[in-house]
Design a binder for these strands. Sequence first.
DNA 1: AAGGAAGACAACCGCTCCCTC
DNA 2: AGAGGGAGCGGTTGTCTTCCT
Length: 364
Amino acid sequence: MGRAPCCDKANVKKGPWSPEEDAKLKAYIEQYGTGGNWIALPQKIGLKRCGKSCRLRWLNYLRPNIKHGGFSEEEDNIICSLYISIGSRWSIIAAQLPGRTDNDIKNYWNTRLKKKLLGRRKQSNINRLSSESPDSNKVEGSSSSMALSQSALERLQLHMQLQSLQNPFSFYNPALWPKLHPFQEKALLQSMTESSNSLMQQFLSSPQGNGQKLDIYEQLSGSVTLDQDYLKFENPKVDGLENSMDGLTSSDSPIPFVNGNNVTESSMGARADAVEQSEVAIQPVSTFQPELEDIISNKASGFVSHEDQIAEFDCFKEMNVSKDSLIWWSSDFETKSASSTSWESTSVLQSDGMFQDYELTYNM
DNA sequence: AAGGAAGACAACCGCTCCCTC
DNA sequence: AGAGGGAGCGGTTGTCTTCCT
């Protein structure tokens, strides 16, 4: 027994809106508002449209101050940074870009930005796969059933692309992971734990880890750069995540924000302790996801050719994105969010509900 | 110039969240 | 407390436009 449809599907018009329909809707809403009921609105003004359709039309096109097209470099950067940080939360991303709608940003991302950033990477992967043995088809096939979402994978790829510009091994180094606002980190962690197997667990279970001890930080000694701002955030309790990381006790976790005790009010020294204690007995994971493994092993073994890295860098040069401007935009994000006057939008930081949303998810 | 391919964008669909009763 | 219904969101599809051969 499904739920009742929101409108009589047989009697509603679909497809593009005519100027007359637009005018009717706009005139009515400007005069009377939506009345808090989109479903009833089309009947009131004699439109043969679904209420949801009216809402979409108003929000995306008829509202005042809507901007279309012509995304600036800054907007590109913001979208990229936020997408990598929090994924396809288009409404949240849109809230940081006054005048932009979630639909607009979503379309822009899907049709342009994503291709711009991932295109070269994918092409190089295709080239490589095509030169591999026919067995690679098996990997391809199994990847279709993998639990890691495409979005998460894309974000991982994008993040690794960025980090590879600065440090080819940085993926293994959480200290070099995006410097995010706590909210963003929550969201990122949430998206990771949503994967059937923790992304974190998988990367910790990289092929090198086959029952051996792997000290990630020792491997990286010398390349670890600790950022005090990164360490300073109020660390949330992340009960759910600990559960999701089977086999890793909280004290084992090399991920600073996983273990609240290590991070809350942590100092550089405390962080260093955590790093020193980060020897983890890596257990193989049977459900290891081939594509992620591929990505990780590429990085770990330096499989990505110098040419690829240059190509990846080129793709950002195309965007006129300087390396400096790719410092994850976090401080900018905080500034903007804190003082956001985002037009008719919900600022991330201002949105208690949003915050609660993530916290609830975390405490589950 | 014509036809097909690719790109861009508008709109729809279905799901989840959240509020109200 | 929980059921019902509207709002909001993200994924997907459809259609129009532009580009390429």
